[in-house]
Simulated assay, not measured.
Amino acid sequence: MKHLLILIISIAASNLCYCQKQEPTVEAEFDTIFNFQFESLKNKHNKKILIDESHNTIYSLPYGKKTAREMLRIMSEDGFDVQFTDKVLDSINLNNHKPDILILHGMPNDKIILNSGEKNEILYKSPLVQNEVVGIGKYVYNGGSLLIFLSHHPGGSGALPLLEAFNVKFRDGYANHPKSPGYNCSVCSQFIMTTENGMINTNHPIFTSRLSDELLPKTVKFLCGAAVFRNPEDSVLPLPNNTTNYTRSSEGLNIEESSDSYSGMIGFEYGKGRVIVATDQGMFRSLDLLLDGEKIPVTIHDPDCDNAELFLNCIRWLGKLQ
Rank of each mutant, 00 (worst) to 15 (best):
Y246R: 07
L318Y: 04
T202I: 15
K87V: 02
L4N: 12
I200Q: 09
I296C: 04
E256K: 14
T67M: 15
G158A: 06
L289V: 08
Y183P: 05
N96A: 14
A12M: 08
L123F: 14
S116Y: 12
Q281E: 03
F311V: 08
L16E: 08
P178V: 12
S54P: 00
K125D: 04
D110G: 04
K125E: 09
R73M: 05
V277G: 01
I266L: 10
K320F: 04
D52K: 03
H97G: 05
Y124D: 04
L41W: 05
L128A: 07
T67R: 15
S40T: 15
L104Y: 00
I315P: 01
L216G: 00
S10Q: 13
S261Y: 11
S261F: 11
I300L: 13
M107I: 15
S261D: 14
I74V: 14
E70K: 00
A13L: 01
I296E: 01
N96P: 01
V228E: 04
I74R: 05
R316Y: 04
K295S: 13
G173E: 06
S286L: 11
S91H: 08
E251C: 12
D78F: 01
T57P: 15
V129A: 06
G156E: 03
L216M: 15
M75S: 14
K98F: 02
F166L: 04
P303T: 11
A165Q: 15
Q20W: 01
G137F: 04
F80A: 09
L102G: 06
I315L: 10
G155W: 02
G273W: 02
T243F: 03
N231Q: 15
L290Y: 06
S259M: 00
D234V: 08
L162G: 06
P161I: 05
P108A: 08
E294W: 06
G264C: 05
Y124F: 12
Y141K: 15
S40A: 12
L104F: 06
L239S: 05
I92L: 10
I6W: 02
V140Q: 00
G106D: 08
H152R: 03
E214P: 02
E257Y: 08
I136R: 00
E118W: 12
L318W: 05
Q130K: 12
F84D: 03
R171H: 14
S126W: 01
K44I: 08
P238A: 07
R316C: 02
P161R: 02
L147K: 01
N167R: 12
N307K: 10
F166E: 07
V134L: 14
F191C: 06
E233Y: 07
F222I: 09
I122M: 11
T25A: 10
Y18R: 02
L146V: 05
N203A: 03
K119M: 15
G264D: 07
K42V: 10
Y270P: 00
F229S: 04
D213I: 06
E257G: 07
I122E: 12
E23K: 13
L150T: 03
F36N: 06
